[in-house]
Design a protein around this nucleic acid. Structure first.
Lengths: 246, 246
DNA sequence: CCAAAAGTGTTAGGAGTACACCCATGA
DNA sequence: TCATGGGTGTACTCCTAACACTTTTGG
């Protein structure tokens, strides 16, 4: 194993991608042959960190190396350090050996990341052949490495908490978006349906969501007006103590 | 250094204690002589974890060893892993050598803990001579080890977020409490003053805060009625989806 | 002209906020 | 009898929730 690695600490990334209809998760394919059995499953992008590297730096570096994604919103979740988190299944242990990390005790520090998929897209943003987007509600039926199901649950809960009080929805949207797209984000994150008129009334009161003189193109229905999120206005309001809530 | 320790991972505890008037923080005194200078400052209870120990287990064990506190509410904050977090001041580096942990890279995983100080008390609950309670707003003027000021800020922010949606206030109170005590908790945590009548109206709607047929004793004013928090009722309501907010 | 999503107001009920005086106890 | 904190109601405002039809575009 590389001596410049911290042997007991890794980072992972739970990347949420929104494509105007669904919330998706980025997974990396993993194949291991162990005792003549082929195991195929999925994992989050992640790896051990370097000794001379901050946690935040490591998570960005590794995400870029493994998927090609960069310059997206990332935030730490918390540390996952259960004693047996690497030891529950034979394929997990075999995989550690196969990549020359035969440490038994690895504490992982997952991050969640947010990206819009319409432009950064299923193709353009993701370079690695082994990486694939899955709708978040399908992931519970997909075999994941280690404790990654548990990490995903925590990431979802955290996303739901944070999106209530922070302007995270805009990280999932393109720079110019329609109100229906914005509404859809809250609907897929909270698994609810919202009333269109009430939602728009609320948005109309938020000075940092500014209407543009621009409409959707090439849609086979009445084109929606486009809006943008003004970070400037938002931070000005926030500094005058202010409570963001949808 | 003990070979059964994970050399790069520690846990710390930010213990909040409420004494009916103030929110307090538990700190441990640290003295180091370095280059013939005596440094005296304070730190959170904390240490490196053992190789065969969960993070949650480690934080409980170390808190008990260093302060005597046990069986109190504890929850992980997040990992702090800045490259230079141990290297900013000479006393920090000298201290690591003095306790035989001369590792340069230690990622710490702080927990926050909640306790009531009226019964568990300034004396009874805390065994270690070096441990002392400080009012939380005095701590910013006290020299703390490493990045412990930053960790405290994060702990306070987290406490404020979580106390909004979870029944944490009751962890800071004795089993039987008055409504004024409960109100005071929200006032000290959020640094606001609340209207007594409006506060009590809200509480009256919460079925899991149940009035007892019991009053305060030995107070030189009209004795307050006592209440208790019913975990049963709370969890029943919560399972029928329900939104806790003060 | 059809399909599809955009856009738009009103009303009723509930929650939040502001506000001032009397009560019970110990000293 | 005084000092101290406990305990109580009302009116107004604002937010929330429920609800259905017309408009604009591409095909």
């Amino acid at each position: 194993m590389d001596k410049s690695l911290v042997p007991n600490v890794s980072v992972d990334s739970v990347v949420f991608g929104f494509d105007s209809a669904h919330l998706n998760i980025l997974l990396i394919s993993r194949s291991i042959v162990h005792n003549e059995i082929l195991y195929q499953d999925w994992k989050f992008p992640g790896d051990l960190i370097l000794k001379n590297e901050d946690l935040d730096t490591a998570s960005k570096r590794i995400l870029k190396e493994q998927t090609g994604l960069e310059k997206i919103y990332m935030k730490q979740l918390k540390a996952f350090g259960a004693l047996d988190r690497l030891l529950k299944r034979p394929q997990d242990m075999a995989w550690l050996v196969s990549i020359d990390h035969p440490e038994e005790r690895v504490i992982t520090i997952p991050y969640y990341a947010l990206i819009n998929l319409e432009k950064n897209g299923k193709k353009t943003g993701v370079l690695n052949q082994n990486a694939r987007w899955f709708p978040v509600d399908e992931v519970k039926n997909i075999p994941l490495a280690f404790d990654h199901h548990e990490i995903l649950e925590f990431a979802l809960e955290t996303l739901r908490n944070e999106v209530r009080t922070k302007p995270l929805a805009f990280e999932l949207l393109p720079p110019k978006f329609s109100l229906s797209q914005l509404q859809k984000i809250y609907e897929v994150i909270f698994q609810v349906t919202l009333d269109k008129r009430n939602f728009r009334k609320k948005i109309a009161n938020l000075s940092y969501i500014v209407p543009l003189n621009e409409k959707e193109n090439d849609v086979s229905h009445r084109p929606a007006n486009l809006y943008m999120f003004s970070r400037d206005v938002y931070h000005k309001l926030k500094s005058q103590n202010f409570d963001f809530t949808i």
